[in-house]
């Protein structure tokens, strides 16, 4: 168990190093970092000071190490737009993004998991078909189409909800709904197949042959085992929520990190893009680590120390 956690921790650490290295390489690829970070119209003395501060006169290896030092201290340059520290510009947007992504994640799970289990338990019935047909939409309807259609119906036609902005709690409803419904479709489909696979296992048949009531079989044997593969998809969901936030915040003029990223890319405000890239990278690593930990906790085979690697 400890060995499993330690190896996951080591992998997470390596991934963090990789992400920072990738950011360093991309930054160097895109031209002179002084111009990149400070912008093309900064005064010449600012460039000189920047080069000295970042050690751009030093050998590349040295610069690489210094870059790690800077990242560790949160010293990531200033935004081209208003000259404030890029880290601050990004961090002040984080709460707004969490205000819609966390409820969306909850909505994903609250709709997706029961729907998937329900479909699996009623396999090949009308309910199953209906749930699966709806869930196919999750894969084929892009979030911007979903968001715009919801806006068209609830904001433009019915006028129940505001179509953009972030003044009231009502403003959050459409963004949450957009991300929540799409993610729920993905989770429902995945939960269904995990559940079906579990229900096909010999120990389920044994348990029901033993005379256990069917709902007892499901609750005591099928659900805990189906939970294991479902957990992995949650780590993946965090990634698609982050990507979805970029689009959804843009549609609904929601002032979160995603919209900031789009404007920063459009304006080539590279310091801000870099901070967001690192932030999302770290978030993904943390999310995957948490999922791995939960995995180890749920799967007793990993607890005892040996046996199969999780897929």
């Amino acid at each position: 168990m400890t060995r499993y956690f330690l190896s996951r921790l080591a992998r997470a650490f390596v991934t963090v190093v990789l992400i920072v290295s990738a950011a360093f390489i991309v930054l160097r690829l895109s031209g002179d970092p002084a111009i990149t970070i400070l912008g093309p119209e900064a005064p010449p003395e600012a460039y000189a000071a920047f080069r000295a501060a970042w050690g751009l006169d030093q050998p590349l290896w040295n610069q690489y190490l210094r870059y790690f030092g800077a990242v560790a201290q949160g010293d990531l340059g200033t935004s081209m737009r208003d000259g404030r520290a890029a880290l601050d510009v990004v961090l002040e947007r984080v709460p707004d993004t969490l205000r819609i992504t966390l409820p969306a994640l909850l909505l994903n799970l609250a709709i997706g998991i029961p729907a998937g289990i329900w479909a699996a338990l009623h396999r090949n019935t009308l309910i199953d078909r209906a749930i699966m047909t709806v869930s196919v939409m999750g894969f084929t309807v892009p979030s911007f189409v979903m968001g715009l259609v919801l806006a068209l119906v609830f904001a433009v036609r019915l006028r129940w909800l505001p179509s953009g902005g972030s003044d009231t709690a009502l403003h959050a409803v459409l963004p949450i709904l957009t991300m929540g419904l799409i993610g729920a479709a993905v989770i429902a489909r995945f939960t269904r197949s995990a559940m079906l696979e579990t229900l096909g296992q010999p120990y389920i048949r044994t348990a029901s042959a033993k005379g256990l009531l069917w709902h007892q079989v499901v609750i005591r044997h099928a659900l805990p085992n189906a939970a294991i593969p479902t957990l992995t998809i949650i780590g993946f969901m965090v990634g698609s929520l982050v990507a979805g936030a970029v689009v959804v915040e843009s549609i609904f003029s929601w002032p979160g990190v995603g919209r900031l990223l789009v404007t920063a890319v459009a304006n080539r405000d590279l310091a801000v893009v870099q901070v967001i890239l690192l932030l999302i990278g770290f978030t993904m690593v943390a999310a995957n680590l948490l999922v791995d930990m939960a995995y180890g906790w749920v799967d007793p085979r990993l607890r005892s120390g040996h046996a199969a690697k999780p897929a």
Partner: peptide, 22 residues
């Protein structure tokens, strides 16, 4: 390792960053 690294990051974000930088 490359496969894991690529899978760990939402591609939309990588694409946006690359478009910004390049």
């Amino acid at each position: 390792m490359l496969i894991d690294a690529q899978a760990a990051m939402p591609f939309m974000i990588i694409a946006l960053a690359m478009l910004a930088f390049l």
